[in-house]
């Protein structure tokens, strides 16, 4: 395991948001209706914050090499991720680096997430158990 993981790029399309609405039970209109999202002052439909966090989780577990490694996981949603109604959708780029490793083998990773060059998750970190 190296100290950093190379940028992992995930694409989020409208179809992904629809699927996530159903899977998570979060049917907030701002995740599927441009009309209603703009009404509350958003640029349009945005991704669920929890969807972005879920992708951060994938980036971390992929790097850890274990889908069940995460023991603590926290983020701050600093900026929405707008998802245009086209084939490309939005692109979110995740990076991570080791912040600390405990004697017990637990490793804390600081994660960054950007969309269109802007930070969308702040203070994101995950503590993973070493296999």
């Amino acid at each position: 395991m190296s100290d950093e993981f190379p940028p992992q790029v995930f694409r989020i399309t409208r179809a992904d948001l629809v699927r996530y609405c159903g899977a998570s039970g979060d049917f907030n209109v701002i995740h599927w209706s441009d009309r209603l999202a703009t009404k509350v002052g958003l640029p349009g439909v945005i991704a669920h914050g929890m969807f972005t966090m879920a992708l951060a989780g994938r980036a971390v577990t992929a790097w850890a090499g274990a889908a069940d490694a995460v023991e603590d996981f926290s983020v701050r949603f600093s900026r929405p991720v707008p998802v245009p109604d086209d084939d490309e959708g939005a692109e979110v780029i995740f990076t991570g680096r080791v912040k600390s490793t405990g004697d017990d083998g637990r490793t804390t990773i600081a994660v960054t997430a950007t969309c269109n060059g802007e930070t969308v998750l702040k203070l994101a970190q995950a503590t993973i158990r070493k296999r």
Partner: peptide, 10 residues
């Protein structure tokens, strides 16, 4: 309402 922070401790 917007979601500010989220944490899970497992």
């Amino acid at each position: 309402v917007v979601h500010g922070d989220q944490r899970f401790a497992y």
